[in-house]
Simulated assay, not measured.
Amino acid sequence: MTRTIDKVTVLGTGVLGSQIAFQTAFHGVDVVAYDISDEILETAKQRFHGLAARYTQDLPDAGTRAEEALGRVRYSSDLADAVRDADLVIEAVPEALELKRQVYTQLGELAPERTIFASNSSTLLPSDMVDFTGRPDRFLALHFANEIWLHNTAEVMGTPATDPDVYAAVVAFARRIGMEPIELRKEQPGYVLNSLLVPLLNAASALYVDGVADPETIDKTWRIGTGAPAGPFQIFDVVGLNTAYHISSVSESEKQRRFAEIIKERFIDQGKLGVATGEGFYRYGEQA
């Protein structure tokens, strides 16, 4: 029989961690939002109130549910306290393997035996982290896209050691909180979404670097030709140009490294990081 998940803890209250926690609470599940200090949690509370406003704006049927969701979130900077009753812990801490090792080593000692661990990592495979967890059968990846209330995919990826019952429980949980579970049959860097998206972004950046067309033309071509709501440079702005820079700067492709140099010189050094700062390849508050 598939186990049920009724109590969830999210580790990390950054942009995506906050979204995961709020989406869970919005769908009626109690959540503990954990971060390493009370100061960070105060910032997180502001972020959660902002999410409540976005949900109300973007989801016609939100009604009072967004405000009610705020009451289902408990905040804690004490890891033992945060995970003591958790059926599922979703880890959304920065993408550093040594930090993940420290987190999972502590978790393995503090969380109940029954607790499932799931990583939202987008760059590390579950197999990279499984040895840290102390419970390889109860560990997998659960990956969300940004603005998860709109782009509601939840990619589920286990390791060969993941218990099928645990995998099924996480799929059922994802569906319960309004996500569309994307079930991967084997480990894949980039999962499904980024395996499709990254080649598009790389092709677009190469066209830009080579001077073939400007970002507006490239985006317009993609939108008209495919019916997609956004082009690749609009996607870069949503993802954030800092992220695009860091990924491109360590690429084996000389063209991608040149793209990193260009966006640093023309955008990042000017404080233009994308949607988050109001300007990137496009200016926001105006028609992109």
Rank of each mutant, 00 (worst) to 15 (best):
R3S: 07
T9A: 09
V10Q: 01
L16Y: 08
S18W: 06
I20L: 02
A21V: 04
T24F: 03
T24A: 04
F26N: 01
H27I: 01
H27F: 03
G28R: 06
V29Y: 04
V32L: 08
A33T: 04
A33N: 06
Y34I: 05
D35I: 03
I36M: 11
S37D: 05
T43V: 08
T43H: 07
Q46M: 14
R47S: 12
A53N: 12
A53W: 09
D58S: 05
P60I: 15
G63E: 05
V73M: 09
R74P: 04
S77T: 09
D81A: 09
D81T: 14
A82V: 11
A82I: 07
D85C: 12
A86D: 01
A86R: 00
A92F: 05
P94R: 03
A96Y: 08
Q102V: 13
Y104K: 03
Y104N: 04
T115I: 06
S119R: 01
S122G: 13
T123L: 15
D128H: 02
D131V: 09
P136C: 02
D137K: 14
F139P: 01
L142S: 08
L142A: 14
I148A: 11
W149D: 02
N152V: 12
E155R: 03
P160V: 03
A161L: 08
D163T: 04
D163G: 04
D165K: 11
Y167P: 02
A169H: 01
V170L: 00
R176L: 09
M179K: 10
I182C: 13
E183I: 15
R185E: 15
E187F: 00
Q188S: 15
P189S: 02
G190K: 06
G190V: 07
V192L: 15
L196Q: 13
P199Q: 09
A203S: 10
A206R: 11
Y208P: 02
Y208N: 02
G211H: 04
G211D: 04
V212E: 14
P215D: 09
R223W: 09
I224S: 13
G225R: 11
T226H: 07
G227S: 12
G227H: 08
A228N: 11
I235K: 07
V239Q: 05
G240N: 08
N242Y: 11
Y245K: 01
I247K: 00
S248G: 06
S249A: 15
V250N: 12
V250H: 14
S251D: 09
S253L: 07
Q256Y: 10
R257I: 03
E261C: 07
I262H: 01
I268T: 09
Q270C: 10
K272C: 10
K272V: 10
T277M: 12
Y282F: 13
R283D: 15
Y284D: 06
G285W: 10
A288F: 14
